[in-house]
Every structure is written in C-alpha cells, then in structure tokens.
Design a protein around this nucleic acid. Sequence first.
RNA 1: CGGGGAGUACCUCAGCUGGUAGAGGCGCAGCUUUGGGUGCUGCGAGUCGUGGGUUCAAAUCCCAUCUCCCCGACCA
Length: 500
Amino acid sequence: MAEARITPRSQDYSQWYQDVIQHAGLAEAAEVVRGCMVIKPHGYAIWEKMQADLDRRFKATGHQNAYFPMLIPLSFLAKEAAHVQGFAMEVAVVTHSGLKAVDGKLVVKNELEEPYVVRPTSETIIGHFFAKWIDSYRDLPLLINQWANVMRWELRTRLFLRTGEFLWQEGHTAHASHEEAKEEVSRMLDVYRDFAQDVMALPVIQGVKTENERFAGAVETQCIEAMMQDGKALQAGTSHDLGQNFGKAFNVTFQNPAGVREHVWQTSWGVSTRLVGAVVMAHSDDDGLVLPPKLAPIHVVIVPIYKTDAEKAQTVEAANKIAKELRDDGLAVKVDDRENVRPGEKYYEWERKGVPVRVELGPRDLQSQTVMIKRRIAPIEANGKPKKETLPMKDLGVALGKVLDEFQTMLFERAKAFREQNTVTVDSWKDFTDVFADQGSKFVFAHWDGTTATELAIKEATKATVRCIPLAGQGPAAEPGKCIKTGAPSKQRVLFAKNY
RNA sequence: CGGGGAGUACCUCAGCUGGUAGAGGCGCAGCUUUGGGUGCUGCGAGUCGUGGGUUCAAAUCCCAUCUCCCCGACCA
C-alpha cells in the first residue's frame, strides 16, 4: 500500500533517527565497507554549510588551514604513552603496498618495513612537523587547522554519530606558555558554543571532562554537551589542553627571549560530521528532518498550483520570477515545478527534507498578488490542517527573511525549553537511579566525589556517566555537598547523563 | 567483539512443510487533474546478500561468510 512512513519517535527512537536520515536523503550505510557511510548530496550540503561557517570563525581567530598526510608512521603513535593506549585498539594499519596475482587471486605484495596507521587524529604527525617549523618564540603562537577525514575502527556504528571513517576539522596550536594555551582552549570552546547555539540552534553546556573521559594524551579536555530529544547527551565538540605532552614526545621546542630552550604548550580542538547527527536528533520530528535555516541547503521551496494549462504557465512563470527575486535577496530557493507530482506529495517530500519554509503560489494568489506560506513547524488548526500564512508578493524576500530568523530563534528556544524541562537536580541515590531507569535519561546535576572508581560504579549501576564538570555559569552555582553514590565530600555538582 | 533479529525489484514486504519469482508503492507511456500523499489502463523492473553443499529440482533444507539493525563492552 502506502510507502513506508517515518517511525514515530515515541515508538522507537533509534528507528526514527534512521528513518529521518533515509527519508531526507542525508546518508546511507556504505554496506560494502563495514561501519562506513556514504554522505549523500543533501547531507553533504549541510556539512558544507557547517564547514563554511566554522572556517570563517577559525580564520577570524587567526588560524590558517593546512593539510597533513593521512598515513602516520606506526612509531609516531607510540611516542606519547597515553595517546597510543587510547587509540591502539581502533587504528587501521597499513602493512603492505601493491598487489600480485596468485592462483588467480589478488594478494598483497610488498610488506612495508614500518607499517603506517590511518590517522585516528593527527597530534603525532603534526607534532613532528611543528618540531621542524618552530625554533624561536617569534614563531609562536602557531595556529593551524586541518579539514580532513579520520578513521577509527569502531565496533558499533550509527550514521553520523559514530562511523568508521568520518570528516572533521582538527585545530592544532602551539604556544609559548601554558596560560596562552589555556586561553586558546577556552577561546575555541567558545567558538564551538557560539556556532552550536547561533547556527545549529542547539543549546550546549560547556564543561571539563573527567580524567576518565579525557582525550588520550591531554592534560585537560573541555567540551560542549548537547541534549537530544531522548534526554541523552551528545558531545558536540572538544577542546584539549595538551600541556607539553606532545611537545616533549616530539621534541617541539623554542628559544625564549632569554635564550633558554623550552617545550611548546599545545592545544587541539575538533568537531565532526557528528554535528549533522546532532542537528537531526535535536530538531527533527515525526514528519522528518527539521533544519535551522542557517544550515538549510534550501531555505524556501515554491510550489506552483494550477489546474489549466494557462494557469500552469502563469503560476510557473510567476514562481520563477519570485525565486529570482528571493535569490537576489540571498535566499536559497527551489521551484518545484514537476508536473507528475501532486502538490500534496511535494509538501510532504520537502517537509521530510527539512526545508524551513514552503511558498504556495496559485491562481488566487496571482489575483491578489500574495502567496501562501507554511513553516516547517506550524500549529495544527481546527480544520485539522497546519496553519498557513498569507504574505504580499511585494518585498517577499524581506518578509521571508524575517520568517526564517523567527524560525531559527524558535528552534533554539524550543530546544532550550526541552532541555530545561528535562534537567533535574537530585540529591538522593534513589532519585538518581529513577531518572535513568529503563531507557530513560535526563540531564542530572548531582554531587560526585571526583574519583574514577565512583564514576565507573555509577555507570555500572545506571549507564549514566559524568558528561562534564560544568564551567562557571553553565550549571547550578557551585556549592559543597555529598557524593550521590558514596556520600564523600564534593565541591560542586557535575552533569550526569546517558550519552551517545 | 559477545548475545539477539534481518537481508527477495528503487522502496515496504509476501512466498520458506523444496517444483518456472509475487503484491503494493515506484519508473515509463497515455487518459484524468493538481490549494495536504488522485484514479484508471498498459508496460518496465529482481545474480532471492555472497560462496559452497544436499537434491532430478533450492528463495525455500544444511554449512560457511559478508552487511545492516537492536542490546552489551569500547569509543567523537
């Protein structure tokens, strides 16, 4: 009968997420390459929007793009003890070059003297080159960003959220002092926060990772954490203070003004295509994808409505004329003038794809010099149909710009309200376990004694982990208390949640 | 990587006590007409995930393997 619909969130959240991605044409499993995905044009367009905005922000903060090899000598990984331990299990290793035919089958030919690993991240190889590039304090700070793919051999994958190969940016900087490096870590975390909130319409909490969750090789890891619609947390970006760990491992040194040679202080920070998954999970609904206008590849779709050939010619012509004007106003506009598809079907299709605003243009509109618009999220009216609004054709671009701005703001406020409704402060172990019972999750601010042992015990019991120790102003005001699990003294509440 | 489920047309699936590959949606042609998923007619489309085995005969039974999904451990 009917084409399969999107599974409602309330029925099966995981299936809903996959359905939204499939119906919107964002990505699909690579199938022939385990754990990897094909990012389809509509999904890639969202990533490109993210890239463009982030790249602008990186350059505005003084960074330059560069590119380093995807293959890293195996020995490099071993130079930083914690780093190799963290990534050893999930690197892909290149051991041979070339192929030869044996008994009609292609087999590997030449074994490499030293294997390479496919980068899971680039601290090591960049450390090697920083050592060559940096000699004097005058060479610092060195502020580099790389747009690249990385590979991590994951055992369980989910489209965008966790895949074997993914796209990201990794910033790598070197500084003359720890203070300066720490400032960089904070600066870039703020860039991520602003991007998430202003562009993705995604409210985030900034915090510090526990020792257990820290990046392998970092002194401190800061993060932004976002809430998905099932109450789980998603780490949306990280910014690491690497201290002198990699500086020492790769002998990255500089002469200070006093002529003394010191190891540099480094940072690294990154966000990935996971953010596409975050947008999907944060805003979409049972009708499909919902995109904030600032990330929407198409802002407005115009659907001409007609009965007769004469009306068709008139409305299509008018639609194209309006589209041109809107494009001149900076909007991305699609005119859906397909003849073999009914208007109703077009509506559903573009809603599934997350287009923020639809414009309907029919004979009655031509008569009155107006258009009907419908927002991707609109209240259902008494007649059971979604609310539509009438706008004059004159200065439509300005009016639609305003509608898009409102939509962007509405999404952020909605996500923020959802998070607030699902954030609790608890002080008893019973209340704590109740929140995380079954598949449940919320953001829980509770006291923790600061030990990894307790963190793991809590995870064992509830599946919830410390997502971060909130920075000042990002959670309840700091006040001493007793650990939710052990009763040991605690300086402040931390953020607990189940996570992706 | 452990436990469970599933791979048949572009999609959703039926067929599975072995006997020539099916439905609806979909695509193409036509008629119909279009302000929330039109209806009708004709046509089109499948190495039944892959490899092996049993058999006169395998989508169906057996073995192996790959991939996807769910739960767990690991992780951005």
